[in-house]
Amino acid sequence: MDWVNAIIQGILIGGLYALFAAGLSLIFGVMRLVNIAHGDLIVATAYLAWVIIKATGVHPLVSLIFVLPIAAFIGYWLQIGIFNRVLGKDILPPLLVSFGLSVIIQNGLLATFTVDSHKLNAGVFETSSFEILPGISMGYFPLLMFFTAIAVIIALQYMFYHTSLGRAFRATSDDTEVALLMGLDNRKVYAWAMAICLAVVALAGVFLAIRSNFDPFMGPGRLIFGFEAVIIGGLGNLWGTLIGGVILGVAQGLGAELDPGWQVLAGHLAFLLVLAIRPRGLFPRIAG
């Protein structure tokens, strides 16, 4: 029974990992940027929610009303102020700048909030669950996380393929120069992509903070989980990131069942295994 439980919890936590991954995937798809500070931004939004909740006393899920737009706004200006200046043919500058940003966010959080960990309290909702089979229960909160991930992916897919913003994303990603000729300012297109990315990041950050303790140095770990989900699922495939997240979650759950020290390691090994046998991921995007 423990094993079945581990798998089910793993699947549900996969939703959170897909949320970590979706923003990474979107940004890479639109501007070929891999943002090393992605995980730190997730943690930073968790702190933002914590501050808002402290000030207003709202429920963590309600705090999203504030956290999401603030995060999106920050994302827009982060892109305009920093990333747009270093994007180009050479991948090194954006990579190094995001690496520097990662260190800045971590130590900025440390200086502001100390090393103590915090948690967002979502009340009884956090722990309540129902039994689907005798001995196997499902928590409402993990389930909410999982379905939110599905909803986010559906929304992102719709945005990408059926809205004028999505058209601008695809066109700029295809051919920046010709997109300019259509009147699309690629810097603004990128900024919108980063704004959307940060909104998803904020969602992930608040869920993360309800689920477990968080501290200023959790970011790199979340970046790596998101990255692994992207690569396992296959680059450029949003549904793939969900499957990648689920595989990662299940591998971690099974590893933890074996030995608590093996939880994260088992996830990494599953990733390396996929990389060894299917370097393009399990569901690479079909060209066209």
């Binding site: 891999v34 790596i224 390691l265 990494h268 090994l269 370097p279």
Partner: peptide, 19 residues
């Protein structure tokens, strides 16, 4: 892995070593 993904891939390997 290419480019920036190579970077994070090397990081995962380091985490595997550490753990």
């Amino acid at each position: 892995l290419q480019g920036a993904y190579f970077a994070i891939g090397t990081w995962v390997v380091a985490e595997v070593f550490r753990l």
